[in-house]
């Protein structure tokens, strides 16, 4: 059974209460517009959202599948632990902040500071796949996990903005691009790779499956792989006082 919630004109507190207390595993939210904190801390549900959910969607998510027909806003997937988020649109700033597990698939672009302080833990390896372009500070302080940018933005602008990987000290970023982004910080190592490794290729295939694209086109492209140069990039020289 699927529970259908018409969110038109509904405040976030009421909507989220309905979602949390629903007996049904499957929930469909229709006419969603700006309601914040949807699916916050939730697990074991399948939520489909039609519209534009508000900020902090899927924060602390602990194992749901959330699919959005539309764009999502800022702080999506903050400290997400597990689950899958599929967005048929773009995402705002700080997407996947400190996420520790689960996967986020964005069809379009993401804003600034996507994947900031993303980290891996044991079997949890978070992943973000971005179909379009990423804003500046992609993977800032990244400590683990995988970010893939496919760069399909329909314009001439570069696939990622400035200061990509600032403070990065773990994990990997794959950029589908012919040229490297400007201003890579010195502690980030970039290498051109002939083919995506299996894990990243699987992510790209999943992304293609979700958004009805042909995987071949994306798998055959040139990618740059960005990794931190050492595990401890910012061991600034301290002197004990």
């Amino acid at each position: 059974m699927e529970k259908i919630i018409d969110a038109a004109g509904m405040g976030f507190a009421e909507l989220n209460r309905l979602v949390k207390t629903a007996a049904e595993k499957k929930i469909r939210i229709e006419r969603c517009l700006g309601q914040r904190y949807i699916a916050c801390g939730l697990k074991d549900k399948e939520i489909f959202i039609d519209g534009t959910p508000g900020n902090a969607l899927a924060a602390y998510l602990d194992g749901c599948r959330v699919e959005v027909a539309g764009s999502v806003q800022d702080a999506t997937g903050d400290t997400m632990n597990a689950g899958t988020l599929i967005v048929h649109g773009s995402a705002g700033d700080a997407t996947g902040y400190a996420m520790r597990g689960g996967k986020i698939f964005i069809e379009g672009n993401v804003g600034y500071r996507c994947g900031i302080h993303m980290k891996a833990f044991k079997e949890n390896k978070p992943a973000i796949v971005i179909g379009g372009r990423a804003g500046s500070f992609l993977g800032e302080y990244q400590a683990g996990g995988v970010i893939v940018v496919l760069g399909e933005s329909g314009d001439e602008k570069p696939a990622v903005g400035n200061f990509c990987g600032t403070g990065m000290h773990g994990g990997e970023i794959y950029l589908r691009s012919e040229r490297l982004p400007a201003l890579l910080p010195p502690q980030v190592r970039a290498e051109k790779i002939a083919a995506l490794p299996d894990g990243a290729a699987e992510l790209v295939k999943s992304w293609c499956a979700f958004f009805g694209r042909k995987a071949e086109k994306y798998l055959r492209s040139a990618y740059f792989r960005l990794t931190p140069d050492s595990a401890n990039p910012y061991k600034r020289l301290y002197t004990v006082n």
Partner: peptide, 8 residues
């Protein structure tokens, strides 16, 4: 500041 505001 939010897409939802425009879509409203």
């Amino acid at each position: 500041s939010e897409e939802s505001a425009i879509r409203a």
